[in-house]
């Protein structure tokens, strides 16, 4: 009978994670898709240097970052998966969301500066352990950064590569 307490707590946590986690994920994907469509005009390149035929623009460093965490359900599923190996698809969507969100935030910053393209975009991921983190940390930071090229005023044709 002494197992009932922890078992109830566990199933409550699992249920909370499953319900709220999947609602949050669905909403997040919706907003990501919407904003990606709105910001499609800002071109991002991982290339190191802009093409030399561009008119000399002003440059600015733009950064977007996000800290995201997996829910209880996802973490449990991942722990189960680690027993047999293979794809941890619950974490895959988490990383995908975090990366796209970070890139979007960077693009939003570039848009505010009036830039049309971002060059040398780099993505960086770091696992962050909170004070309460136990064995498995599923709390990660993604930073996206790059150099926004702001075209001189009056010369606003899109870059041709």
């Amino acid at each position: 009978m002494q197992f009932i307490g922890p078992l109830v707590l566990f199933s409550i946590l699992m249920l909370c994670g499953l319900i709220f986690g999947s609602i949050a994920e669905k909403r997040h994907y919706q907003s990501i898709r919407q904003r990606e469509r709105a910001l499609v005009g800002i071109l991002t390149y991982p290339q190191r240097l802009p093409p030399p035929q561009l008119p000399a623009p002003t440059t600015a460093l733009v950064v977007g970052s996000v800290v995201i965490s997996a829910d209880y359900f996802k973490r449990f599923i991942a722990v189960l998966r680690m027993l047999v190996g293979g794809r941890l698809d619950t974490y895959e969507t988490l990383l995908d969301r975090a990366r796209r969100e970070a890139i979007l935030r960077m693009k939003e910053q570039a848009e505010q500066l009036g830039a049309q393209s971002v060059f040398n975009m780099k993505l960086q991921t770091a696992a962050i352990a909170g004070r309460s983190a136990r064995a498995g940390t599923a709390c990660l930071e993604v930073v996206a950064y790059g150099t926004a090229l702001i075209p001189p005023h009056g010369l606003s044709q899109p870059p041709t590569t």
Binding site: A24, S65, V67, E101, A138, V143
Partner: peptide, 26 residues
């Protein structure tokens, strides 16, 4: 903030406190 973040670890989602903290430190 850490306690709030540990609750978020159950529900999942963005940890705004930490995002803010890292932006400030950057």
């Amino acid at each position: 903030r850490d306690i709030a973040a540990s609750f978020k670890n159950v529900f999942g989602g963005e940890l705004q406190g930490y995002t803010e903290l890292l932006n400030d430190s950057r």
